[in-house]
Design a protein around this nucleic acid. Sequence first.
RNA 1: GCCCCCGUAGCCCAAUGGCAGAGGCAGACGACUUAAAAUCGUCACAGUAUGGGUUCGAGUCCCAUCGGGGGCACCA
Length: 824
Amino acid sequence: MSTEPAQFDAKALTDKWLPVWDEIKPFDSGKPGDNRPTKYVLDMFPYPSGDLHMGHAEAYALGDVIARYWIQKGFNVMHPIGWDSFGLPAENAAIKRGLDPRGWTYDNIAQQKASMRRYACSFDWDRVLITSDPEYYKWNQWLFIEFYNKGLAYRKNSNVNWCPSCQTVLANEQVVQGLCERCDTAVTKKALTQWYFKVTDYADRLLDDLDTLEGAWPAKVLSMQRNWIGRSYGAEVKFEIEGRKNPIEVYTTRPDTLYGATFMVVAADSDLAAELASEASPEVRIKFQDFLEETKKTNDIERLATDRPKRGIDLGRFAINPVNGEKLPIWAADYVLADYGTGAIMAVPAHDQRDLDFAKQNNLPVQVVVDTGEDDPSQSGVATTGDGVIVNSAELNGLKKTEAIAKITEVLASKGLGKKAKNFRLRDWLISRQRYWGTPIPIVHCESCGEVPVPASELPIRLPDSKGLDLSPKGTSPLGGASDWVNASCPKCGQPAKRDTDTMDTFVDSSWYFLRFLSPNSDTEAFPKDQAKKWAPVDQYVGGVTHAILHLLYARFFTKVLHDLGYVEFEEPFTRLLNQGMVLMNGSAMSKSRGNLVRLSEQLDEHGVDAVRLTMAFAGPPEDDIDWADVSPAASAKFLARAWRCAQDVSSGPGIDFATGEKELRRATHLFLKEFPEQIESFKFNVGVAKIMELVNALRKTIDSPAGGSDPAVREATEAVAKALSLFAPYTAEDMWQLLGHKPAVALAGFAEPIAELLVRDTLTAVVQVDGKLRDKFEVSSSITEAELEALAMASVNVQNALAGKQVKNVIVRAPKLVNIATN
RNA sequence: GCCCCCGUAGCCCAAUGGCAGAGGCAGACGACUUAAAAUCGUCACAGUAUGGGUUCGAGUCCCAUCGGGGGCACCA
């Protein structure tokens, strides 16, 4: 035994254990007869934009901790992975290099897959999906038709968000601060006929069901979703228009201020404005046309500037206030939105800042109808929006805001002049995209039959080969150039017809992929109901907060539709959600141009997979950003080597009776067994890792003490360390497990249960406070009574000194830990 | 403008209303070594952004202010 002990070598461990795991497949979740209880842990699937980067490394490390934890707890964990592989980057890369988007995409997938395997993610490699495979997008098309038949997919013409650079339309959600989410180009408006999913039909449920996720999803995400859906309650009020047959309806959240309306405003770009202007005087018509042109040129960025002066013109028409018959001039203005509410408002300048600003600019009257005790808005320029006493409002006078709202709504309803109403900020989801690399919309346009869905038996409608197609953005779909593909026969009448040439928003792909993992290779159904019953919904979803609105909202929408169609029994797709933070470098997001890019592959080469994974978990709470400058993968590697050496130093054999082991270390081990799972289950991975370090410190101390490596407690502790470490550092843990004389895989070894009797100490330190200040402490029996502890405390010299000259008012005893003596 | 979250050692971060420190980084010192690396060990460092309040007792609960981060924002 003169040979040097083996050194810890992270690289060698990777090469050693990967083939073994390939052999034994510890993470196969589809074994027949497996009767472990199930858990579904899902990481948001990646876009194959290149190799994995630091952000992926964090996300997948954290997701893996959770998956591996539940495996250790005895669950059959489904932890699948796939690729969200349709989308613009592939297409843009293809255009740039004159290639097929497929090649670029599938090469990247192969590279990412290899990296994930090396990274030792506990994925079930028998469950993989790629959304750009016809076998996957066939079911997008099937779902589209299901939606269509339910009236949830429809076409309409409207002013849509248009990115001049991407040359495609964008969903509302993809416009951030007036800019295209993808390329930061200023978004403009364009009138187009496009496909929509009727997500607004589900607005109430999407909002109300967020309550069921309270505590299980990050509060931040819940609030973002609530904000986004933006439900408001109010009333719709009918205003007669002079010279118009039908009244105009107006939505307001403040019907109590109806008597304070002094003018009406319609959105300049609304049909209503055009109609009213067309019947006005010739001067007004010309003015309106000019104004409309000007408004359309204003892009969203300018519109969003809150200090921008509101512009509008008097249409020379009048509305009649239904409650008092007053004539209200009608203006067309750019501060009212055409697609919210009815596109027209009653303006109450005294109690709405926007209306007040507009009124002041245009010398329109201000009528106070709520006395809030504040300054007169027409003088102060500040609209009063708070509660107060209603005045100048006939039957409403003297009421409070909420009373007045209830009363006026009732009055209007009884006269047929209005009704209760609610509105949502949420708009329907525009899913058409004028690009190539996506799911073709399975509709055929026939001259005699109109839009006809493709029968399910003819799916998938495969993308035509990109060869010979002009993929460059030009405002219409490149698919239009594939004439062989476009020309089809109408499924209804058999006459020549044309395929819809748009492709679907890629968020369609990711809205239901979690269900496809149940049977990724099935060619007879999107997913089997019985498997959905067994596995779904997802127990734990892990991903970035960047998808807090878009993806999660759409996936929730799909789930509810699938529920209503009878395909699933649940109504929420993701029971629990964890958002990991970002990986930064020196305080800012990594980017090549900033010169602060940290390459994952270099980190892995330098420190090893385990050290990088451990660093991700140990850096801080998972939802916090990690600044790579603040953490030390080298230190993680050092710690792993230290833990590994403990396994080397264990000299007892497996199966030894732990009962005779050294007591203090046993206590530390069992305290660890109790606390570690608690930390993991509450996502405090950093604290969990700290607990492992603590146990390793105690372990090292015992090994170096006379007890030595042969003490049973040393083996017990080391086994606990190896199992716990398997969540973070699978290679190191597996090797420790082997050093301890066990067979792989440690990932399936299962945690030991803490023994309660080992947790109690015979004695502990009690503290004595006087008026909350620490005055003395002493060792006491853990079973000391309150009376005994109080007597001990009062007998203390230090305490007596502190009490000198004071009168004891109250003594709080919390045996066995604390006594607090309060004085006057 | 409205809403939400966060301010603890030089740094990253812990702490069921009960002794401010679990863990780590960086630092100092020591052991081992011919020396160094590696390893092992020891030590120091804040009274919890600020000001009030509740409580026997507040980093923790409440209010205000300051600072940082995030979301929504002409949605009637």
